Simulated scan of single mutants.
Amino acid sequence: MKKKVGIIGLGHVGAHVAYSLIIQGIPNELVLVDPKEGKVASETQDLRDALMYCPHTVTITPGTYADLGDCDVIVNCIGDITLCATGNRLDEMNYTAAQVKSYAKKVKASGFKGYIVNITNPCDVITDLLAKEIGLPKGHIFGTGTGLDTSRLVSQLSQQTGVAHQSISAYMIGEHGASQMAAWSCVSFGGVPLSVLEKTDARFAFDKPELQKKAIGGGWVTYSGKGCTEYGICSTAARMVRCILNDEKRIMPASFALDGEYGEHDVFVGVPCLIGKNGVERVLELPLTEAEKADFHRCCDDVRKNIATAATIPAAE
């Protein structure tokens, strides 16, 4: 079975997504696309050099937007990480929205009918933009959203309690940005609600505002020391691709367009989604408290404002 994945943008994130995909043997074929031809050639060579020691064989080819037409999945990674130095993902928007508007029509013209996983920031806004520009069926375009932020929250919970990451159920939801929130009322450990455990075990008595702050700001801790983020986001995106290609039916946070769920419409935000061969196959509604619902609605309103701003940005020439 052909499993062909294209990657647009080969900066720190795109290159690491490519490596994560081949080291796990997720696709059979990988097509690399970037406005800089030299960058494409260099990354193709480096990845091919790694294949002898990888557990799987993957065909890696440099390509153009026209070569993406028969891909099963495209991972959109275009960006300029230096624009994030302020600590605000929205500062990338003037650049990334213009870039996406310039090449989305080329992706559409290629005849692409598969699935797009968007990483490019601001993630929710650019995912919305891709959906509007390319016009694929519902479920075919979604973003990494709060997937990485959720991992950061779970990491904090694991460090304090000693419980393995895989035994913790918790979600950051809303914007992949400053207004996102932790759904504390839905956190559980092996099925036991946090609200039960925190009454009897000091390890589960969390400073919730502080942990939420760390989950939101984790990316800037990484950025401050190395000038980029790589491993966490590439692992998040690679898992989403694997969910599609292997029809995993895995529930994980993704940026997706709400259509009545949580009382919201026509806005891309991070929520738990069931991901399988049909992309996002279902949005799962968490039983949020009234206070959490209010915070979530405010977050959605913030994203809508940014989507409106992105619509006014002209395409790059």
Results as ranks from 00 to 15, higher is better:
K138Q: 10
E133C: 12
G147P: 04
T120K: 09
D128A: 12
N121K: 13
I134W: 12
N118S: 14
L148D: 06
G147E: 02
I134A: 09
D128F: 00
D124V: 03
I119S: 07
G135Q: 11
G139K: 08
D128I: 00
D128K: 09
G145Y: 02
T127V: 07
C123K: 00
G145D: 14
G147W: 01
G139R: 05
Y115L: 07
F142W: 06
F142Y: 15
Y115V: 10
A131K: 11
T127K: 06
T127D: 06
Y115E: 01
H140C: 10
V117S: 01
G114R: 07
D149C: 13
I126N: 03
V125M: 07
V125E: 01
T127A: 03
L130G: 02
G145K: 00
H140Q: 11
F142Q: 02
D124M: 04
I126M: 09
V125K: 04
G135F: 11
I126S: 04
G139V: 07
P122E: 05
I119G: 10
A131H: 10
D149H: 15
K132M: 10
T144D: 10
I119C: 09
N118W: 00
K138A: 14
D124Y: 03
G143T: 04
N118T: 14
C123S: 15
P122L: 09
K138N: 09
D149I: 03
P122Q: 10
V125Y: 07
L148C: 08
P137G: 11
I116H: 09
T127E: 03
L130W: 03
D128Q: 15
L148G: 12
P122W: 02
C123N: 15
N121Q: 13
G114H: 06
T146L: 03
F142N: 01
G145C: 05
D149V: 05
C123G: 12
G139E: 06
V125T: 13
I141R: 03
D149G: 08
I141H: 08
P137V: 12
K132L: 11
I119F: 15
T120W: 03
V117R: 03
C123H: 02
L136V: 10
K138T: 12
K132I: 04
T146M: 14
L136A: 08
A131V: 01
V125D: 05
G147A: 13
G143P: 04
L130P: 06
K132C: 13
T127Y: 04
I134K: 12
E133H: 05
L130V: 06
H140Y: 05
G135S: 11
K132Q: 15
G135K: 12
Y115W: 10
Y115N: 05
G135E: 08
N118D: 13
E133V: 06
H140I: 05
T146S: 11
G139A: 12
G145W: 00
L136T: 07
T120G: 07
T120Y: 11
G145F: 00
D149A: 14
L148S: 10
G143I: 07
I141S: 00
G147K: 01
K132A: 13
P137S: 09
I119V: 15
C123P: 04
I134H: 13
V117D: 05
N118F: 04
G135A: 14
Y115C: 05
I116D: 03
Y115S: 04
P122N: 12
I116R: 02
N121F: 05
K138H: 13
K138W: 10
N118K: 02
L129Y: 08
I119W: 05
V117F: 02
I116K: 08
E133M: 15
Y115H: 15
